[in-house]
Amino acid sequence: MSWRRVKAVARRHMYVLQRKPQRWFDVVLWPVVDALLFGSIGVYLARQAGPGSQGVAVLLSGILLFHVVFQSEISVATGFMEETWSRNLLNLLVTPLREVEYVAGTVLFGLAKLALGVGVVGTMAFVLFAFNITDIGLALVPIIAVLLVVGWSVGLIVVGLILRVGQGAEILAWGLLAFVLPLSGAFYPVDVMPAGLQYVARVLPTTHVFAAARVVLSGRALPWGQLGWAALGTGVLAVLSVVYVTRMLSAFRARGFISRYT
């Protein structure tokens, strides 16, 4: 793997973020809206429930951790989509750039975007609602690590779908996580969900990460067993996403789908 090529890809996406104002929606605007929305709902619910309610903390930690998944997913997916929108895909495919280097470049850039996006939610939560996510302590590190890998994996699945189906699949860059969010119980325990959906929710690694975060928020120790299951599920998801995107790239080359982007 060439570190030089990885940096070049990351830098290319940095230029895009600088020059395309609409890209700041994902990084700044949605995080601000989400922090304001979920923080306000949390305050309202806390007033209804009375003193000692954890509504604000649960909602704000949920949305903040969801943004870890969202920002990491969206950086991989929109990074690839940018190449299709600017018809740069053929230029890239004829260079020595390897697939793993391209993904590593978008991930590297995504980490910067993540810091920005999550930083905005965290700052808003602290300034407007006096909620400090770092109160979770060091337990935040493994929680965020698992969510990052989930986001990258979902991003690769979206890239695979775009390679196979074309631009019609682009909506999934935003839409796929819209399914994951309610099913993962980001703001509530899974057992409040309709019975049938609970089975689906328990299969998702994100469900166990959000549950583990709530345990820590309530002042108890990090449930390593639950996080371990989440990490295992995430590992399986990551392997499946790499296999899927690799197969879709082979299909893309075999069927000459580059003609969609020239």
Partner: peptide, 24 residues
């Protein structure tokens, strides 16, 4: 190829620099 555009968010020097790095 005559039909390939340049990415709109890049200056010519940045575009060339990107590909110079990719080609080593």
């Amino acid at each position: 190829a005559g039909y390939l555009p340049l990415p709109e968010a890049l200056r010519v020097r940045e575009f060339l620099h990107l590909f110079g790095e990719l080609y080593g």
